[in-house]
Design a protein around this nucleic acid. Sequence first.
DNA 1: GTCTATAAGAAGATAGAC
DNA 2: GTCTATCTTCTTATAGAC
Lengths: 206, 206
Amino acid sequence: MTTKERIMDEALTLFSQKGYGDVYVGEIADAVGIKAPSLYKHFKSKKDIFDAIIEEIGKRYEEQASSIGINGNNSMEDAFLYLDISEEVLIKIGKDLFLYFLHDGYMSRFRKMLTLEQFRNPDLAMLYTKQFFTDPVEYQTNIFSILCNMEKFKEADPKIMALQFYSPIYTLLTVCDRDPKMEKKAVKLIEYHIRQFNSNYGKAKK
Amino acid sequence: MTTKERIMDEALTLFSQKGYGDVYVGEIADAVGIKAPSLYKHFKSKKDIFDAIIEEIGKRYEEQASSIGINGNNSMEDAFLYLDISEEVLIKIGKDLFLYFLHDGYMSRFRKMLTLEQFRNPDLAMLYTKQFFTDPVEYQTNIFSILCNMEKFKEADPKIMALQFYSPIYTLLTVCDRDPKMEKKAVKLIEYHIRQFNSNYGKAKK
DNA sequence: GTCTATAAGAAGATAGAC
DNA sequence: GTCTATCTTCTTATAGAC
């Protein structure tokens, strides 16, 4: 990692813990192991560091999103993988999404940072909603839409199904962001939730 | 309202928008219509204002919680009100909870303030989870537990039912906190969600 | 590119008059 | 209880040596 990258990395960690306004450039420098004035050889201001992080993670998200099943880019293709969907596959999808959001270094810190900045910056608010609500729900809407058409699932509004599938996962994610010790309980609840979800909507037997 | 109360009120508004660290005592004073040093006749420090708000709202919550159906204090009694529960009653419960959380002046600002402070203060993190996850889910768990026993609802784990009932409401609440223009869409989604929820679990006809 | 020294300004809090 | 004036400390950022 270059010094510039290390600055962004440490700054992201600090911003995600305390929020932009409560992180001092000296703290970022300390974390990197240099003195504050040296930062200004890499970035022209504190705000510049913040903006660079937003841009960098935006890039990563667009690259990774489709592969993990978050946005709608290629859900039509993915759906074919789900044609022989079983309860266990559905549980895996839910758990994987939850654990990716919770543990991926960038996703986790980025989400927390956006959480702390969302009410001050409308652009960040929109970005948060896109990444952690609109995109996942849209993606899953497409999946359930296909599964309903294939008569693997009972007929129901796939958008509502996606909302019902995703919301407990998201809600438990915010709980675990506040209290990481809740992770095991959360994973269990997600499993039970999805078993019940499948029992409500799935036509296939267990 | 006394000056002390007005200070707390304006401070809560500012803290909920920008977070504690980015609100300056001068801003609070401006909002109240006095000069910064005058604040110190009412509170001994900026932190003291913050702590007073936490305590005050904690009091309000405990007073109001049971009446609006948030915590578990008297859900057993309330459940009898729901014995002749219909889809429309269920929708009303969901919408009312959503709109109370979203629009109640104290709830709304307090939730946003806790959102911005949750990662710095473990006590506030616990408080957030209690008020916006544990208490509502527990309350609804009791309700669904009774409705299942009364055979108004199909047999299923009432805790999972509560999670599934509440999570979309909570998720949409956080969306609307970021973008108040989403309220109408959110209310519609909640309505459809609950209709579907009732169709999944309810034994009674529409 | 990193450092030391330092400027320039902001912010929390106090002193003391009214 | 509110004000003006002020203190002290903190914070971002720059200057200039190495």
